[in-house]
Design a protein around this nucleic acid. Structure first.
Lengths: 214, 214
DNA sequence: ACCTGAACACCGTTCAAGT
DNA sequence: ACCTGAACACCGTTCAAGT
């Protein structure tokens, strides 16, 4: 340990790396869920002191955001159709389905919203497809933003469809006061159905029809 | 204290009420922000023990959700136009602007998503307007859901536009690698502009155009 | 340069007991 | 019936010190 490190820099050799931290955090995430991903818990699993992590991540939210980036990196896109509209459908759906597997994700994005750098390639593809379909670059930016916001909201709502804890929403929808809210009372069945199934795919087509020149 | 309570029920007279708890929580929310709204802090401000609150709210998230309901109750809608499309614009915009004042809201909704019972009247109005514009009740339900998901996502993105901490998003958008992401590099300026201003109003018109029969 | 130890300043929530 | 006290089982993060 008295030799200089291989990089020629002085001081103690690093035992930890950001990647090792993220790998350990990811393992805990998969096996025990997000609530278990704490600074202390990750440090324990690595056999280091909690404070050692702060050399490699800024803070806990930073750790979670970097974790989302890892998940985004693992997204695999199917072969993309040549036709722009079909390509957009494929990319967005892959993004949505991939992110929907992690119900804790919207909560983290609500605290520290950002797009993981790893999805930049997909974002580029989306812009290209919008332009190819006839939008100007400025229009493509606005179209991307609109669909992204919708996707985020859809992920958030979907994250809420936990079968165990019936949401307040359902409770209210189940038996709305027929005198004060006649339409909602009549629509209760349709509501239950709409919230039981995922309408992202169909909704996405509505959005693209509105955004693309016919 | 040995007399029966006015309600005729036995036992100690209630010192606290759900309303008193919410009022205290709301005051802390306004003066110190959401982070300060803790069970212990609210109890302290009421001069009771933390555990006393659990008789009136289920847990901390329940407290926050009830708080959102209070905020929704205070929303004031301007006079609604007779024409369905204009009415929809007015209601959604009022909802959006009102909720956008509370950047912490999407995070709570991400954990315990629900619609506050207080917005049911607005939801009923929205369904009525969609139907009046020519949609069936089932279509109205789906249209409502689509716009609500978009609104949630827009609120989430907007909550992120804190001027102090530049988001990762902006950092990446500021200088995307021109070789790998040529379109994003060219679009950087448009991106900054799009994320600098709020496009909810314009986007809402796009959505309504897509959803309403022409 | 990188990591540790101890402490700070909190949390939400349980449980059994008091009035 | 309603509230309290004490404790449990944690958090993230600071700071000064060690190697």
């Amino acid at each position: 340990m008295s030799r200089a490190s291989p990089t020629g820099r002085p001081g103690r050799r690093a035992q930890l790396s950001r990647d090792a931290v993220l790998e350990a955090a990811d393992a805990i995430l998969r096996s025990e869920g997000v609530e278990a991903v704490t600074i202390r818990r990750v440090a324990e699993s690595l056999g280091v002191s909690p404070m050692a992590l702060y050399r490699h991540v800024a803070d806990k939210d930073d750790l979670l955001v970097l974790l989302i980036d890892r998940l985004a990196q693992r997204l695999r896109y199917p072969p993309l159709p040549a036709e722009p509209r079909a390509r957009l459908l494929t990319i967005w759906r892959t993004l949505y389905e991939g992110l929907a597997e992690h119900p804790w994700l919207p909560e983290v994005l609500a605290r520290r919203r950002m797009i993981a750098p790893s999805v930049l390639a997909a974002v580029e593809e989306i812009h290209a497809a919008f332009c190819e379909a006839g939008l100007s670059l400025e229009e493509a930016v606005l179209a991307y933003r609109l669909v992204w916001q919708f996707t985020l909201g859809a992920l958030l709502v979907r994250a809420g469809r936990t079968p165990d804890r019936p949401s307040v929403q359902e409770a209210v929808r189940g038996a709305p006061d027929a005198d004060r809210y006649p339409l909602l009372a009549r629509a209760a069945a349709a509501w239950r159905q709409a919230y039981g199934r995922d309408t992202y795919h169909a909704d996405l087509e509505v959005l693209l029809d509105a955004l693309l020149p016919r």
